[in-house]
Design a protein around this nucleic acid. Structure first.
Lengths: 191, 191
DNA sequence: CGACTGTGAATGAATGTTCATTCCTTGCCA
DNA sequence: TGGCAAGGAATGAACATTCATTCACAGTCG
């Protein structure tokens, strides 16, 4: 079976190589080889390496956001909605460890830091479920009255640390363990 | 005033450059220039770049551990000891943002992952205050009954996320805010 | 005291490698 | 045959590391 979709092949190869070896361990030539394409061809589809990386991140973020929204019900109680989002996030990252590794690298690089800065300064993006959930929780005095970034740190800091431990093989996660941990995150943010 | 201590100068320059620009943004030539030394000289003091980086990490870890131990009283209640360690860690990292950035980079690199793996597999290092504190808490049923790495994730995930936000300028920390957040971490790990 | 010499620290140009990116060539299909 | 996608060798920049050479100085001897 042939793949005529070289753009997709290139992105997939880059994703896997970068996830496993980091940005600097994934030279364009290696990406090309893994994608079954020649080095020059990549530049027919992406302006340069940076553009390729940014495109990849955009795509992954889109996927994650989509999977968080499925089954999310605005009318449920806050705690339930929080646990839904957190566990959907965990499930996604568990199912896609490669995406997780890529995103981690991305957000620790200058690319990701700039992106985040732009988002904080830019107008509050309406479709940010997390932000609106937390703002609602503070207003209703269900959550601790802390600045948003700190609530995010309390909620997602542990989740990402847990996923890191799992991906590197320091722990083996199962549903019970995950559920307990996510509830512990809730204990951290709730009043 | 002359500095005859070139080894120290080199480490300082490398620390600052790596913290600010990452491992790959800190070529040896740049480190040499910042240290007021020629490129070749670095190799009189360090076998290669990797050795320099590992030495740096060892030194910083030593500093941190020392500063955590001062004022730590084994006879105090568990909660108090936890808060002491957590806030000493925060204070250290706040006072030394450059060390924080370096350590983050290090632990996200293959060097750090291997180091951590060795430590988990190796014999439980007796002088690991965190590990013994948490083990005691589980035994006394004060802490949640979760595998150690998960308790670490719950306790330190938020702290590191908070420091990151602070260093990048996404929040401005003060004592009250920090105290509240650390107590929230405790809420996360306690039963 | 002053010339001589041995030593090891320091230098920085040179080396060899690894990249991202370019661009000329090839060959396919309409 | 014309146009365009794909290939891959070529280019040049950026690196880590090496090494022949310089230099400062302490010790020695006349």
């Amino acid at each position: 079976m042939k793949t005529p979709d070289k753009r997709h092949d290139i992105m997939k190869a880059a994703l896997e190589l970068i996830a496993e070896r980091g940005f600097h361990g994934a030279p364009m030539a290696m990406i090309a080889e893994k994608a079954g394409v020649s080095a020059g061809t990549i530049y027919r589809y992406f302006e340069n390496k940076e553009a390729l990386i940014n495109d990849l991140n955009r795509e992954l973020e889109g996927n994650i956001m989509k999977s968080l929204q499925t089954g999310y019900l605005r009318e449920k109680p806050l705690r339930e909605r929080f646990l839904h989002l957190a566990s959907a996030l965990c499930k996604y990252l568990l199912d896609h460890p490669v995406h997780f590794r890529f995103i981690e690298q991305y957000y620790n690089s200058p690319y990701g830091v700039n992106l985040r800065r732009e988002r904080l300064l830019g107008k509050p993006n309406g479709d940010d479920i997390f932000r609106s959930l937390f703002e609602e929780g503070i207003k209703q005095q269900i959550l601790k009255d802390l600045p948003l970034p700190l609530l995010f740190a309390l909620a997602f800091g542990p989740i990402l640390a847990m996923m890191r431990d799992h991906v590197f093989g320091f722990i083996v996660l199962n549903d019970t363990l995950m559920k307990k941990t996510l509830e512990a995150c809730w204990d951290g943010v709730k009043r």
